[in-house]
Design a binder for these strands. Structure first.
Length: 247
DNA sequence: GGCCAGGCCTGAT
DNA sequence: ATCAGGCATGGC
């Protein structure tokens, strides 16, 4: 159990051994990447990106656990963020392992084994609706799948593999691949990204696939990070919504 | 109370 | 290949 403290321009990690920092959290927080260089590259001849980056320059793309990301983004589909959080918390409280930390009891993300043996009825308590069947089947497939084979694939191969999961489509596949650190050039297109692209990059296309292709061509292997800046910028400023404007 | 949410599956063209 | 319609649940 570790703790991260926001200390102005620094983050202080508590309760973390040097070896754990190197082995786990350095990768998780993507600390090996020069985000200054990334931002300069993305801003080159692009006032839109320049503005989006200036709005939230501290954004990073984490490299999270594949399986946890898989389940979490299955839950995210056609859902709102507060409820997504609640469902994941509920999942952990019901099927995870309790861990005492200071005066609190926290719960780990439940393993694939316990989720794979649930039924739609038994998972009813988490109120995930029709996504429950996707969760169960995804957990079952994870047990059979050798995740290491994904690491050796290019992003096109990873995407193809992710799309085989029942309940995982283009958008969720891109999110899983991007946030688990397997597909840095993924550009997940959701409602917000679609709106911000239509508004600020007219000509990027109409279908989600066109927009993603436009972004991969424009941003290359930095497309995933670009998407994060754009997504956050769009959502916080309601870009593309009636009655809102580019700040 | 109705519209919408970090979409996907199915069945029909 | 593309497209409508349905889908569980609850935020606002």
């Amino acid at each position: 159990m570790v703790e991260a403290e926001n200390a102005g321009r620094n983050i202080i990690f508590h309760n973390m051994s040097p070896s754990e920092f190197v082995d786990v959290w350095h990768g998780y927080f993507d600390l090996g990447r020069d985000y200054g260089a990334v931002q300069r590259k993305l801003s080159e001849n692009d006032p839109v990106m320049e503005r989006a980056i200036a709005f939230a320059p501290g954004i990073r793309v984490l490299r999270q656990d594949f399986y946890e990301t898989l389940i979490s983004f299955i839950i995210s589909q056609n859902n709102n963020i507060p409820r997504i959080k609640r469902i994941i918390e509920c999942l952990a409280e019901n099927y995870g392992t309790p861990v005492a930390y200071r005066e609190h009891i926290l719960y780990t993300f439940p393993g694939a084994r316990v989720l794979s043996s649930q039924t739609e009825e038994s998972l009813g308590c988490i109120r995930a609706g029709y996504r429950s069947k996707y969760i169960i089947r995804a957990a079952q497939r994870v047990l059979e799948l050798d995740i290491d084979t994904l690491c050796g694939m290019d992003s096109k191969g990873v995407r193809q593999e992710l799309l085989k999961f029942y309940g995982v489509g283009e958008k969720v596949a891109d999110c899983i691949g991007l946030y688990s650190g397997l597909m840095s050039d993924a550009f997940p297109v959701d409602r917000w990204v679609k709106r911000v692209m239509a508004t600020l990059y007219p000509g990027s296309g109409t279908s989600n696939e066109e927009i993603a292709a436009f972004a991969r061509k424009k941003f290359g292997s930095l497309a995933g990070i670009a998407q994060q800046y754009l997504f956050y910028y769009a959502r916080e400023n309601r870009i593309g919504i009636e009655g809102s404007d580019d700040p």
